[in-house]
């Protein structure tokens, strides 16, 4: 697989490490144990398009949010993952 790092250009997948689902957001300090449990342990196992977090450790050290089809490996978009897992601001 090749991932087009927005900072370094298209690179081989051995330069990257995989974390997984980009959907979970780290709950705020007062969210409670159930919310944190869900954040830490519960993941969707998607066959198809999903947003994932990848780390370009063999390059610029950017965390990237990669939209990828887990069946075909087609990569739909790659962007910096800035704030992708940040706590949702509760009003």
């Amino acid at each position: 697989m090749r991932i087009a790092c927005p900072f370094c250009g298209p690179r081989e997948n051995s330069e990257f490490s995989y974390l997984g689902d980009a959907k979970p957001k780290r709950p705020g300090p007062d969210a409670g144990e159930d919310a944190v449990y869900e954040y830490v342990y519960l993941r969707d196992n998607v066959a198809g398009e999903m947003a994932e977090l990848w780390y370009h450790g063999g390059g610029c050290r950017a965390w990237l949010q990669v939209r990828r089809n887990t069946v075909t490996h087609e990569i739909l978009s790659v962007e910096p993952a800035a704030g992708a897992g940040a706590a949702s601001v509760t009003p």
């Binding site: 974390l19 780290r26 780390y55 450790g57 965390w63 910096p80 940040a86 706590a87």
Partner: peptide, 18 residues
């Protein structure tokens, strides 16, 4: 050493961009 760097970058970029 390498994993902590990765972890800290995760915290910095993904969790606490502010």
């Amino acid at each position: 050493a390498g994993l902590v760097m990765q972890h800290l970058e995760f915290c910095r970029q993904v969790l606490f961009p502010e």
